[in-house]
Amino acid sequence: MLKVSVYRYNPETDKEPYMKDYQVDTQGKDLMVLDVLELLKETDPSLAIRRSCREGVCGSDGMNINGKNGLACVTPLSEAAPNGAPLVIRPLPGLPVVRDLVIDMTLFYKQYEKIKPYLINDTPAPAIERLQSPEERAHLDGLYECILCACCSTACPSFWWNPDRFIGPSGLLQAYRFLIDSRDTATEERLADLDDPFSVFRCHGIQACVAVCPKGLNPTKAIGHIRNMLLSRAA
């Protein structure tokens, strides 16, 4: 039996959030945290979580697992709570809670939309694809794989304080993904939009984002690249 402590809050019935303890029979298996929550939901279907692909590519089930942000579906018990230690599950921090482990991600998505997350190229499109060398394409590796799970941004203190004005690691990773795409022609416009005291420069290089990214991406590095681009544009 595994002790699982889960953050519960239903705005219709609860005055304030509380931690509820469950006992889950894992049959000694090294289950993924999501499997444990699904087992738990068999006895208590009132627990609200988001989940979809269960293989770490859709980014639905970001949550705070024993103090660290991660995806429940690719976090095994042996990593989250080794040696039968209790599992403690809370919603991702820093954004409002809708119910239980479901958070309101509006601000997170707003920041993503702010960076114009789409290719801009006003030259007429060719009859085939726009050519791009493997080297140019390689610049996108480590950037395009982002799944928008929000583990990084909700682990970032700067984002906690200014989620409405600091783009946050996830959005900035995507900003750089388009800045560096050889097919994109809006570099100047994109950089001009980022050159204010909040959007980029609230990153203080804490690197909490790097520590939690379930896809192994490095937003801090991307932010450094953006800063260098801003610098060479201004200097």
Partner: peptide
């Protein structure tokens, strides 16, 4: 591709 999909590429850029 014109919309920005990050396809893998050949040496010819296709």
């Amino acid at each position: 591709d014109h919309m920005g999909m990050p396809f893998s590429r050949t040496e010819e850029g296709r």
